[in-house]
Design a protein around this nucleic acid. Sequence first.
RNA 1: GUGGGUGUAGCUCAGGUGGCUAGAGCACCAGAUUGUGGCUCUGGGGGUCGUGGGUUCAAGUCCCAUCAUCCACCCCA
Length: 422
Amino acid sequence: MSIKAPRGTYDILPPESFNWHYMERVLTETAELYGYYEIRTPIFEHTELFTRGVGDTTDIVTKEMYSFTDKSERSLTLRPEATATCARALIEHSIYGGAMPVKWYYLGPMFRYDRPQTGRYRQFRQFGVEAFGSDSPYLDAEVIILLIDILNRLGLNNYELHLNSIGCPECRQIYRDKLVAHIRPQADKLCKDCQVRYSKNPLRVLDCKVESCHVAIAGYPYIKDYLCDSCKTHYETVKKVLKDNEVNFLHDDNLVRGLDYYTNTAFEIHIPDIGGQSAIGGGGRYNGLVKACGGPDVPGVGFALGLERILLALTKEKEVLADNSYADVFVIAVGEELEDMSTKLVSKLRKNNIKSDKDYAGRSLKAQMKFANRLGAKIAIIIGEDEINNNYFTVRNMNKGEQSQVANDNIIEHINNILANS
RNA sequence: GUGGGUGUAGCUCAGGUGGCUAGAGCACCAGAUUGUGGCUCUGGGGGUCGUGGGUUCAAGUCCCAUCAUCCACCCCA
């Protein structure tokens, strides 16, 4: 046992994998209800896609990418997120030439080289949606309504939706200048991280958690007061549609995005009490992204959810969310010479779509019963000499502890009956 | 990248200031009940004490290094 899963990766075993199936079903079925359909893209891309599409000053690109050189000296990178990938696919297949908007969802692993902690892994999984080709604020709202619908269907209640508008490059630049002018006299009072933020991306200073930074920048201007008319109208419409559709949100002046191709709506979902990283998802509008990736000027809006973090929140109270029975029926052969019979019966059950299993360890009847119980079997079928000689099966209802003799020919019907009533 | 905690059985963990053959609970296997699970009782298998080095008559225990893991920060999902 010397080789272990690499740092920041982990195995999902049953019954844990049941939770993933359950969650993924809710995610994909809900998305399709809203007209979003799955796009499956490569798990690695040319490194350049992410330096351009994520931003070469972001932490993701500067210190978290899993990049490697292949045998032909190409620089490739395990995808750290999927939005840039979707933009690439949109451009590559000239999807923008057809009917708009195009609405996609994706589900799968992402990779970031980072120190693992609660709810953070080097290989983690995201579900996200992207809608390209419409600048309508109603589409921003749809994406958010979908997100909230998903959380509700999963049974999460204690989340907070934070919402803000970061305007367009034009009005944001005016705001940025105002903000920098406001901070400049206090710049030396900021924490070490904020010193860096101040020069690199001043809007980031706003969501610093250090108390002294808040004090230092007190009275800072809000971006909402600097939005141009068009951006202001866009944001007001998004908020109105959310209210009309009973989605609660908190306007958050400190919610910002770093890069120029992010525009207008920005939102994040927080679950305060999962410990560690409370952000389980986020998204917004990115009207400049497709162009930044080398395509035409196509607007877009979307979100991504961190699935480990969602599961963390979901399993806080109950460990296994889905049906955790490994087999509905367990077939027991008493004595090795009857194993041919149990094998045939298990095959018959399976052909009739009854989830069933049998012993492969040469166990005694008692031990097989115990095993059946542990698998969560609802029914045990016993085949012994008596049964063979008289053409019947002994069927035991494991929950009720009742058992009966069932003629061989009636077995499927009988089992289906019990399962239907359990 | 920065700062802390922890590495002993498959899992959760005991093992004061070093000292006999390293323990418990759970899990697993078997028996009590020779054709019947869950509860109980009895027994059994399973550990190079993360790894390497050092101190010592003697190291699971002390020291150093290293790796792993967990937690937090930066940042993100």
